[in-house]
């Protein structure tokens, strides 16, 4: 049983990392808290569901379309955020809260409030080995998340573009002085974020029911992981994702599934009270 919990926690945690990466990237580069993150992710999930169910497209082909839709939406969103005045962090919270309400209600209008799930039967079978059990769904989730995280790592740490992005995360003014176009970096961060959300959304639709108001949970996860890792620290995010995933898995086993929703909130409040700069972070 222990290994099962561990495996599901790590698999879930890797996926949570994937969810949080877009949020953390946008926040790190532009200092905008995007509270509509969860709603965007659910929107991507709905797009995938619609293509898969109504157009009968194979599930794999839903990713490009979801990414494309998200790119358009996120670029529009970036225009809105660009108009904000200081203090960016607080103003962006209020603005994106409004955006979240608009997206939520648009989804309610377009897709109705019914619960949807992208049901792929083969994902429910699994590997069984001496009491150890892992479903193909968990395996796929784990592998896909790790691949995407690895690709992002390559972009961030092995390319010139990534260097510029990291410089902007560390110090906007200094980056601008060094000749980096900070505004372009902001747009790029939104684009990368859109791609990440577009990848995570359809996957989310496979493991979780889609309904318009479920985005709030996702947003809370993303906020918790980002603050856990310390602002602008991509390296800590995977650790944070795993800890949250494991914490949720153990809560489900020991306290019951209905307490799961509280884990992220309690973790976030504890963090903000005792280590507001993140577990790995130091005072900036």
């Amino acid at each position: 049983m222990w290994t099962t919990v561990l495996v599901s926690g790590i698999s879930l945690g890797s996926f949570y990392t994937l969810i949080a990466l877009g949020f953390a990237l946008i926040f790190g580069v532009t200092r905008n808290f995007n509270l509509a993150h969860g709603e965007l992710l659910v929107l991507a999930g709905y797009v995938a569901y619609w293509l898969w169910k109504v157009c009968a497209l194979p599930f794999v082909f839903t990713f490009p379309v979801a990414i494309l839709v998200l790119l358009l939406v996120c670029l529009g969103l970036q225009r809105l955020f660009a108009r904000l005045s200081e203090p960016l962090e607080l103003n962006s919270i209020v603005l994106s809260f409004g955006v979240a309400i608009v997206i939520q209600n648009s989804m309610l209008f377009l897709f109705s409030g019914n619960y949807r799930l992208i049901r792929i039967p083969s994902l429910n079978q699994g590997i069984r080995f001496h009491g150890f059990y892992m479903s193909y769904g968990q395996l796929t989730l784990l592998i896909l998340s790790l691949i995407i995280i690895f690709l992002l790592y390559i972009i961030m740490y092995r390319t010139y573009l990534g260097k510029a992005l990291r410089a902007t995360i560390q110090d906007k003014e200094a980056a601008a002085l060094a000749g980096i176009n900070v505004a372009v970096m902001g747009t790029l961060a939104f684009c990368l974020g859109a791609v990440l959300i577009g990848l995570a959304g359809p996957l989310y639709g496979c493991i979780h029911y889609l309904y318009p108001s479920t985005g709030r949970e996702v947003t809370l996860l993303a906020i918790t992981i980002t603050i856990f890792a310390g602002v602008g620290r991509l390296s800590g995010i995977i650790l944070a994702g795993w800890i949250l995933g494991l914490a949720e898995s153990f809560t489900v086993i020991f306290c019951g599934a209905s307490w799961r929703e509280m884990v992220a909130a309690v973790l976030l409040l504890t963090l903000l009270t005792f280590r507001p700069h993140g577990i790995l972070g130091d005072k900036l």
Binding site: F33, L35, I93, L220, I223, T224, I227, E261, M262, A264, A265, V266, L268, L269, L272
Partner: peptide, 8 residues
């Protein structure tokens, strides 16, 4: 953000 989490 803390107040948002507190509702849960």
């Amino acid at each position: 953000l803390a107040t948002l989490a507190f509702i849960e």
